[in-house]
């Protein structure tokens, strides 16, 4: 399952900094686990895994990630 940056996460903004992965590439994650933090100009938001499985990063720490972008995939 894709982890896509949605407007629910970013609010009125269109992008943010991927400041930190809280689960590394290849980690086993659970549904609802916080896997990354995105920082916009206004807030830091937690990105949760939508499913249990193996996390595959599709972006790196320090990247500017955009609305609609898939930042990771969870292999169920």
């Amino acid at each position: 399952m894709d982890i896509t940056l949605s407007a629910d996460l970013l609010g009125e903004e269109t992008e943010g900094d991927l400041v930190e992965w809280l689960a590394t590439d290849g980690d086993t994650v659970t549904q609802g686990q916080t896997v990354a933090q995105i920082e916009t100009s206004k807030v830091v938001v937690d990105v949760e895994s939508p499913a249990a499985g193996t996390l595959r990063h599709r972006a790196e720490e320090g990247d500017v990630v955009e609305l609609g972008q898939v930042i990771a995939v969870v292999e169920e």
């Binding site: 920082e39 916009t40 100009s41 206004k42 807030v43 830091v44």
Partner: peptide, 13 residues
């Protein structure tokens, strides 16, 4: 101080 460290629209972040 505003938001994540820089002005109301982030310009001075």
């Amino acid at each position: 101080t505003w938001g994540t460290g820089g002005g109301i629209y982030g310009v001075t972040r």
